[in-house]
Design a protein around this nucleic acid. Structure first.
Length: 341
DNA sequence: TATTCGTGGCA
DNA sequence: TTGCCAAGAAT
């Protein structure tokens, strides 16, 4: 029926990347891969995905997994609420659906961590249902193909693109269509220097005809990141163990950080730590580190500190024992360095 | 509707 | 070096 989907699928079946989640249609594995792939490139996900399904091969394994072990599997992947929400959903599927993965949009959209895209991806890829799944790739492919010059961050534009994608969706092979259009966006219709000469739908593409590839999709630019400055400590006690603190705030919740104080002076930071029970014998500067998050930047003036072990704090003999945020793991593993503070 | 939430790659 | 952004969702 649809010209577009036939060409796309014909191209995809001979040009697929070899990605491990394409060797299964188990909805649990498709779900895991789709959550990991949110805002994350496929090549980054591959090793995490393989380790995750090997360690937690069933929904029940995920539902009963201890939180530290779970976050350790996610360590370095970012957006840690993804895996925390995934466990909530696994528990709900065990109790409410007797461990059987729900297979309608209305049921999936109610689950924690599953939004419109992920619901559509699971339903089309794992259950072969004709449900649209629009991610950043689809937004780029559709907006370029139709020459849509509206801001794609607007809800009205997203709705329009979702409607177009629903119209284009293959009746017979929705599982191939969804993967094909995403694959095209990821490997051919890329943000920079799209490979239009090998695109299966280049002849009908408005952006190709009018040379608009570099200006479509149109997107409002991001706000400036806020900056925060910390004095950060690698604290070692008399037993050679290191102090870590488990995060309770939303940002990096459940992960572990080095002790740190939002401050500009070492003296104030030490006083703050001592008022919370640490007794610091001496300190030694290790350098200034920087870590960039999506919406903020941390500058960390790092010191090694020796403490006695007279207070109750959590310690590890190796930072590998706990899930550490990358912002601080880099401090424990990399060489001394200095950035502009 | 706007903001929050990680990390690594790339131009 | 800096900013963008990648198989988005929650609040």
């Amino acid at each position: 029926m649809s010209h577009f989907s036939d060409k796309l699928i014909a191209w995809y079946v001979v040009n697929p990347r070899d990605l491990p989640w394409r060797q299964t249609e188990n909805p649990y594995y498709i779900w895991v891969s789709e959550i990991m792939l949110q805002q994350t490139q496929a090549v980054t996900v591959i090793p995490y995905y393989l380790r995750f399904i090997q360690t937690l091969p069933t929904i029940q394994d995920l539902a009963v997994c201890e939180e530290d072990k779970l976050l350790k599997l996610w360590e370095g992947l970012g957006y840690y609420s993804r895996v925390r929400n995934m466990q909530k959903t696994a528990i709900e599927i065990m109790h409410k659906y007797d461990g059987v993965f729900p297979n309608t949009y209305d049921l999936l959209i109610q689950l924690k961590g599953i939004g419109a895209y992920t619901a559509g991806a699971i339903l089309s890829i794992a259950f072969h249902q004709k449900i649209s799944a629009v991610d950043g790739n689809v937004m780029r492919v559709i907006s370029r193909y139709f020459g849509i010059q509206d801001d794609i961050t607007l809800d009205t534009t997203k709705k329009q693109i979702n409607q177009l994608n629903t119209t284009l969706l293959s009746d017979e092979q929705p599982h191939l269509y969804t993967q094909a259009i995403i694959e095209l966006g990821a490997t051919v219709c890329t943000k920079h220097q799209p490979k239009c000469d090998v695109c299966p739908v280049r002849l009908d593409c408005i952006s190709r005809q009018q040379n608009l590839q570099s200006i479509i999709p149109i997107k409002t630019k991001a706000k400036a990141k806020k900056e925060r400055r910390f004095i950060t400590f690698i604290l070692e006690d008399e037993q050679g163990r290191f102090v870590v603190e488990k995060v309770t705030d939303n940002l990096l919740k459940g992960l572990y950080l080095l002790p740190q104080v939002e401050a500009d002076s070492l003296q104030y930071a030490i006083e703050t730590l001592e008022s919370s029970g640490y007794r610091i014998q001496y300190t030694e500067p290790l350098g200034i580190y920087k870590h960039v998050f999506t919406h903020l930047i941390w500058y960390m003036d790092v010191y090694y500190g020796r403490i006695d072990s007279s207070i109750n704090h959590e310690t590890v003999s190796s930072f590998d024992e706990v899930p550490m945020a990358t912002a601080h793991k880099q401090i424990t593993t990399k060489e001394k360095k200095n950035v502009k503070y």
